[in-house]
Nucleic acid binder design. Sequence first.
DNA 1: ACCTGAACACCGTTCAAGT
DNA 2: ACCTGAACACCGTTCAAGT
Lengths: 236, 236
Amino acid sequence: MISPSTRRAAAKPNAEPPLSRDAVVDRGLAIADTEGLSGVSIRRIAQDFGVTPMALYWHVKNKDELLDAMGDRILEVIQIPSEQTALGSDGLRQLLSVLIDALRRHPGCTTLAQARILQCDTGRQLAEQALRILRDSGFSVQQSSNLARAALQTALVLVADRPGAETAVPEEERDAVMAGKRAALHNLPADRFPNLVECADSLTDCPDESEYYAEGIELYIAGVQSLARRRVVTAG
Amino acid sequence: MISPSTRRAAAKPNAEPPLSRDAVVDRGLAIADTEGLSGVSIRRIAQDFGVTPMALYWHVKNKDELLDAMGDRILEVIQIPSEQTALGSDGLRQLLSVLIDALRRHPGCTTLAQARILQCDTGRQLAEQALRILRDSGFSVQQSSNLARAALQTALVLVADRPGAETAVPEEERDAVMAGKRAALHNLPADRFPNLVECADSLTDCPDESEYYAEGIELYIAGVQSLARRRVVTAG
DNA sequence: ACCTGAACACCGTTCAAGT
DNA sequence: ACCTGAACACCGTTCAAGT
């Protein structure tokens, strides 16, 4: 007696995994990671599974729903910090940190996660915690909303636009594209753009990723703390 | 003797403007404004001009070049503040403000402007000024680069993701889409998501745009000032 | 329950040809 | 210099049909 998986492997040497909603979503993320989000298409995924494009429509309503599911998947891996540990500005730091860690697994797909952040449970928990911390700090409903949005956007932008990321371009071309941009800055007229020339390398490369993210988080936190102090002084 | 423009108007009641590179770029922006960026296509623009799609390829190399030109056009209108007026953190505020004003004219196209900011002259002047101010404040090359990038991204995100903007969706559907999102937040279980429910309206609507932008700018400035003070204390 | 074939309405783009 | 016709290789999606 041959198991189904063995039979499949025998029939197809290039052992494609069985078609399923989860497998389709994972394949979409894998394509986006290596070739950019524009490389993701129903037909392309079908081809990777050795199946006709219309087969996917059994597992997924349409392409929009697939993209939504990819966004949800990115956020699903997040372990929400408990309410006890996530207090004050250090709580905000933690929330930003766990979100960034999740997004970094698929840096070319941050827009998908952004679209789903208030639609999926993990994203809602993240937003709820951020709002709670900000409200507890004394910010108004309107300010807390805007600051919570700014927190999420900070994480998204830090990952999506990390210097030298070039996630929109296929993997093999990324180095070349980045080198081109850097050269363009270096070749700028030094009399008109002295600072751009001086900063050419540091604008296009990220020598220390963990420092980069830590400083990006810190800029946001410092801003929030500063606004909180002003609030106390003004309203107090 | 009939002038060319009269002849054209007579031949076609729906007086299409003459085809030109500038006109094509403007049409692209107009379509993006009303129908979202995904509504912009070579074939659609050609149709608007009453011309065959291939006619556009005389005025524009390909679609990527068209999108680049649209991004450049958005940034071209910016009046760069003079070096004298743009000093210190107030200079950064001014730079953010002029950039935001330009982006607000085409809120669905911020990604196009983002891609061109270090490639077109206006964008480079903006970046150069920001870097100069940050360097003058004592930040290192690496920090100034990251903070200047953060400034540009702050402007882009404030405009692109303004609550209730929904720029990806055609104009007529925007109200309905936003109302749906708001309702979803209101209907969340109040025991699990008390703050999301409380903030439902302010997360999905922007009652006062100029206050929204002013506070967004202030968050960034407050962060930079706070980091600058720390720098002095630590290094000083 | 799960997949295929044929068809439709869209894309961007090339290339030779027209005026 | 500026535009067209025909063709190609892609999309997403529907719908009836197969097993």
